[in-house]
Design a protein around this nucleic acid. Structure first.
Length: 803
DNA sequence: GGTTCATGTCATCAC
DNA sequence: GAGTGATGACATGAA
C-alpha cells in the first residue's frame, strides 16, 4: 500500500483534480482498493513488461519528448498521457450527473461509517439515493455490495451543485473523520444510512456489528483500524478475485462492465440510458394509472435490461439489425402491444385521452424497428404525407363493410362499425406511402385505458439509443479521438489495441523510423541496389571501398579513393541530418542508422573519436588480428577496415573491394584477367564479392521486411478507419430510421385523433387501430382483429420457412 | 551480466 | 552450371 499511497498523492490527486474540474466524480477508492489493473495502469503507467520495445524510439519521437524507450521516465510520461486521454474521453462517456462521495462524511460523524465508506466500495452510496433506498430494499439489493457508483447516479439534479464539492471533500475525508469523531449524535437518517451500508457491505463479508454504533463506541482506535484493514483486505481479495475471473461478485451485484480503457466501472445507467434513475424510482409507477394490462410491463422491462453488458448489447444490436434485414419485406410481426414505446419522460402532458402525439426521441422497440424497416421509405416521403391525412374524413364505413364486423367484435356492444374506411381521396396518399401493410403493429397506439396518458413518461428502452449510442459510440469515439484530435496513428493504434487486440503482430512498432522509406530517404543518395553501374563504386558502394584499401589501390593503380573526406561528409549527412527526414516530421529525432546501402567508406569519420556507426565498425574489428606495427595512418586505416578489406590488403589485392563487389560480371572478369593473381587471391576476391553482395542482399531483405510490416500496419489502420466509418454510417442510418418511426408514429396519432365514428365520437385508441388494406385503403380495425391477424402472420411465415 | 538491436555472414534455395 | 538475389539462421558488437 505504500506505493499506492505514493501514487495517490501524485497521480491520483492530479487525476481527481482533473475530474473535479470538469464536474465529474469518480469513486477512486473503489478502484484503488480493488487494485484494478486498468486504473493501476493509469496511475502507475503501463508496465514496462507489456511495453513493446520500439525499434527506433517511436514514442518519444511521436510526442516530441526526448524520452528514451528504456527511460524510467517513460512510465510517468505514459501515465500523464493516459490521464489526459482519460479526461478527453470523459465527454464520450456521458456521465449523467456528478456525485458527492463525501456527503455522508459530513452527515455521519461515526468513524466506522466513514471508514466503511472509504474502505468499502460502497462509499458512494451515502447520498440521497441511499436515504431513499431505505424504503426500497430491492433497490439496495440490486446495487449489491459493490454497487458503488451506480447508485449514486440516482439523483442527478440536486447533486450537480454539490459535485464540485465532492472531490474536495473526498480529499478532506481523513481529517474530517478525525474531527468528527467527537460528534456522537446519531440521527435517524444516520442509522438508516448505516443500515444501507450494512446491507451492501454484508454482501462483501462485513458483519452487522461493524455498523453497530454501541459496539463501535467501545472499540478502541486500534481495533477500528484493524477492522478497517481486515475489511479492506477481504474486499481487496474478493475484488481481485472477481477481477481475475472476469466475474462480478455475486448475483446481487449488477453486471457492471468495466471500461476497457479506463478500468472504470460503467454504471448501469450508462449501459442503458433509458433506465434513468427517475424511472427506477418507485414513485413513478404509482403516478401512472395502471388500468391497462400493458402498463405494468413498462417499468419492468427497463429494469430487466439493465444488467446487459456491452457484449450483450452488441449482440442485441446485431440481432436487431438482422431482424430489420429479415423483415424488410415483411409486415409487422411484433405484438402491437409492444408499441407503447412512444413516450418518454420528456414527453409533455396529454391533450387528448388517447391521441396524444409523441415527441419522444426514443421510440420503437425491436418490433417497431422491424416493421418500419419494411417500408423502405425515406423520411421525407413520410413527412410529405402528413398534411393530406389531416383532412381524412370518415364516411359511414359501416355501409362499406357491414359483413366484416358485427356487434360481437365490439367490446362495448355498441353498434359501432368495427371496420371503417377512410376517405379514398386521402387514403391514396397513405397507400402510396405505406403500401398494403398492416399498420397495427407499427402504428397502433398502446392499448391503454381511455384515460391513460400515452406520454406519461414510461417508455420501453429503445434498443438503438440504449445499445448503439453506448457500445458502438464508445468504439467510434475512440477511433474518432484518434483520428480527429490529432492523434498519431501509433496512438490510435494503441487506443484501438485496447479495444481489441486481435493481432499477434505487434503493430505498435508502427512508424518505426526504420521504415524502408526512411532508410530510402536516408540513403537516397546512395545506390540502393547491388546492380549498379561503374559509377556506383565512386560514391555509393557498400563499405568495402575503404580508405585503407583505397590507399592500396592508389598505390597500385592510382584509381579509386584514397581517404576521401567526402565520405565522412556523406556519413554525417546521411546519418544525422534531420533535414533529410523533412517529409517525415515524426522521424526528426531518429538517429538510428538505417542507411543500408550507404558505402561503409562513407562511415569513416574525419575524426575517429566521433560517435556514430563508423565507430562501430572500428570497434568490431578490434578483435581481429592486427597487422604488425604500422604507421599511424595505416593503423588508423586498419582499425576502420572490415575483415575483407584487411584480408584483401594482406593478400595485396590490386583493386578495391568496391570494384570487386559492384562491378558487373564481365567487367569483373576482365579485371581479374588483367592481373595475374594467385589462387588464394582469386578465392579471396570471390569470397569478398560473394559476401559483399550478400550483405547488400541482406540489407535489402531486411528493408523489404520492414516494408511489408509497415504496409500491413497501414492496411490495418485503413481497415480500422473503414470500420469506424461504416459504423458511423450505420449509426446515421439507425438514427434516420428512428426519426422516421417517430414521424410515422406522430402521423398515425394525428390521423387517428381526427377519426370520428358515425356519432362524431373519437375512436378509442385502446380498441381500434389503423390498418391498411391490400387495396391501399386505410381501415380502422378493432385491435382484437388486428391482433388475430398479427398472430396469423407469423404462423404463415413459419410455414413458409418450413416449405 | 543480461537483453535488445543492428549488422555481418553463412547456408540454402530459386531464378 | 555459374552467377546472383532472397532469406532464414546465427554470430557479434554496441548500447
Amino acid at each position: 500500500m505504500l506505493y499506492l499511497k505514493k501514487y495517490f498523492t501524485e497521480g491520483l490527486i492530479q487525476f481527481t483534480i482533473l475530474l473535479s474540474l470538469i464536474g465529474v466524480r469518480v469513486n477512486v477508492d473503489t478502484y484503488l482498493n480493488n487494485q484494478l489493473p486498468p486504473l493501476r495502469e493509469i496511475i502507475l503507467g503501463p508496465s514496462s513488461a507489456y511495453t513493446q520495445t520500439q525499434f527506433h524510439n517511436l514514442r518519444n519521437t511521436l510526442d516530441g519528448y526526448g524520452i528514451h524507450p528504456k527511460s524510467v521516465d517513460l512510465d510517468h510520461f505514459f501515465a500523464t498521457r493516459r490521464l489526459l486521454n482519460q479526461v478527453r474521453s470523459l465527454d464520450h462517456l456521458r456521465v449523467p450527473s456528478t456525485e458527492v462521495s463525501a456527503w455522508l462524511v459530513h452527515r455521519d460523524p461515526e468513524t466506522v461509517v466513514s471508514a466503511a465508506g472509504q474502505s468499502s466500495p460502497s462509499i458512494t452510496l451515502d447520498n440521497g439515493g441511499g436515504l431513499e433506498d431505505v424504503n426500497n430494499p430491492e433497490a439496495s439489493t440490486m446495487r449489491g455490495g459493490s454497487g458503488a457508483s451506480e447508485s449514486t447516479y440516482s439523483h442527478g439534479g440536486e447533486e450537480d451543485s454539490l459535485g464540485a464539492v465532492a472531490s474536495e471533500d473526498s480529499q478532506e475525508q481523513p481529517g474530517e473523520r478525525d474531527s468528527n469523531n467527537n460528534n456522537d449524535d446519531l440521527t435517524k437518517e444516520d442509522i438508516d444510512l448505516i443500515d444501507i451500508l450494512w446491507r451492501q457491505d454484508i454482501d462483501l463479508g462485513a458483519g452487522r456489528e461493524v455498523f453497530n454504533y454501541s459496539s463501535r463506541v467501545k472499540e478502541s482506535e486500534a481495533e477500528k483500524l484493524n477492522e478497517e484493514e481486515k475489511e479492506r483486505g477481504a474486499e481487496e481479495r474478493e475484488r481481485a478475485e472477481s477481477w481475475r475471473n472476469g466475474l462480478n461478485l455475486g448475483e446481487e451485484q449488477p453486471l457492471s462492465p468495466v471500461d476497457g480503457e479506463t478500468g472504470e466501472s460503467i454504471p448501469e445507467q450508462f449501459q442503458n440510458p433509458d433506465v434513468t434513475p427517475e424511472l427506477g424510482s418507485s414513485g413513478e409507477e404509482e403516478v401512472v394509472p395502471s388500468t391497462s394490462q400493458a402498463l405494468p410491463l413498462l417499468p419492468v422491462l427497463p429494469q430487466a435490461e439493465t444488467p446487459l453488458d456491452l457484449e450483450q448489447q452488441w449482440q442485441d444490436i446485431m440481432a436487431i439489425m438482422e431482424l430489420q434485414d429479415m423483415e424488410v419485406n415483411d409486415t409487422a410481426e411484433g405484438p402491437f402491444i409492444s408499441n407503447h414505446t412512444t413516450g418518454s419522460s420528456s414527453g409533455g402532458g396529454s391533450s387528448n385521452t388517447t391521441t396524444t402525439t409523441s415527441s419522444s426521441s426514443s421510440s420503437g422497440g425491436p418490433a417497431e424497428s422491424g416493421t418500419i424497416g419494411g417500408f423502405g421509405l425515406s423520411s421525407s416521403t413520410l413527412i410529405n404525407q402528413d398534411v393530406s391525412l389531416h383532412q381524412a374524413s370518415l364516411p359511414s364505413c359501416s355501409q362499406d363493410f357491414p359483413a366484416l364486423f358485427n356487434a360481437d367484435l365490439d367490446p362495448n356492444g355498441a353498434l359501432r362499425p368495427a371496420l371503417l374506411r377512410l376517405s379514398s381521396s386521402n387514403s391514396t396518399n397513405v397507400n402510396s406511402t405505406f403500401g398494403a401493410t398492416n399498420l397495427t403493429g407499427l402504428f397502433a397506439p398502446p392499448v391503454l385505458n381511455n384515460t391513460s396518458n400515452l406520454t406519461s413518461g414510461h417508455a420501453l428502452p429503445d434498443p438503438f439509443s440504449s445499445l448503439l449510442e453506448e457500445s458502438m459510440l464508445d468504439e467510434i469515439s475512440l477511433l474518432d479521438l484518434a483520428m480527429e484530435e490529432g492523434f498519431s496513428q501509433a496512438q490510435a493504434s494503441q487506443l484501438e489495441d485496447e479495444l481489441d487486440s486481435d493481432s499477434g503482430l505487434s503493430l505498435d512498432s508502427s512508424h518505426s523510423p526504420a521504415s524502408p522509406s526512411n532508410s530510402e530517404t536516408s540513403c537516397s543518395s546512395a545506390a540502393s541496389s547491388s546492380s549498379t553501374s561503374a559509377t556506383f563504386s565512386e560514391e555509393g558502394a557498400v563499405g568495402y571501398s575503404t580508405d585503407s584499401e583505397a590507399a592500396t589501390a592508389e598505390m597500385e593503380e592510382g584509381a579509386v579513393g584514397g581517404y576521401q573526406p567526402e565520405y565522412s561528409k556523406l556519413c554525417r549527412m546521411s546519418y544525422q541530418d534531420p533535414s533529410q527526414f523533412g517529409s517525415l516530421p515524426q522521424l526528426d529525432n531518429v538517429n538510428h542508422n538505417h542507411t543500408y546501402n550507404l558505402p561503409l567508406a562513407s562511415s569513416y569519420p574525419e575524426h575517429p573519436q566521433l560517435p556514430g556507426p563508423c565507430g562501430k565498425k572500428a570497434g568490431r574489428d578490434k578483435s581481429l588480428p592486427h597487422q604488425s606495427k604500422l604507421q599511424p595512418p595505416r593503423e588508423f586505416l586498419d582499425k576502420h577496415s572490415s575483415r575483407d578489406e584487411r584480408r584483401a590488403r594482406a593478400m595485396k589485392i590490386p583493386f578495391s573491394n568496391d570494384k570487386i563487389i559492384n562491378l558487373p560480371v564481365e567487367e569483373f572478369n576482365e579485371l581479374l584477367a588483367k592481373h595475374h593473381l594467385s589462387e588464394a587471391q582469386l578465392a579471396l576476391i570471390r569470397d569478398i564479392r560473394r559476401r559483399g553482395k550478400n550483405k547488400l542482399a541482406a540489407q535489402n531483405c531486411r528493408k523489404r521486411k520492414l516494408d511489408t510490416i509497415l504496409n500491413l500496419e497501414q492496411g490495418v489502420h485503413e481497415l480500422r478507419r473503414d470500420k469506424a466509418r461504416l459504423l458511423k454510417e450505420k449509426m446515421e442510418f439507425l438514427r434516420s430510421i428512428r426519426q422516421m418511426k417517430q414521424k410515422v408514429q406522430s402521423l398515425y396519432q394525428e390521423v387517428f385523433a381526427q377519426l370520428r365514428d358515425e356519432h362524431g365520437r373519437p375512436y378509442p385508441a385502446s380498441e381500434y387501430a389503423l390498418q391498411y388494406g391490400t387495396d391501399g385503403s386505410v381501415l380502422v380495425v378493432p385491435r382484437s382483429l388486428a391482433a388475430a391477424e398479427q398472430s396469423r402472420k407469423p404462423d404463415k411465415k413459419q410455414k413458409d420457412k418450413k416449405k
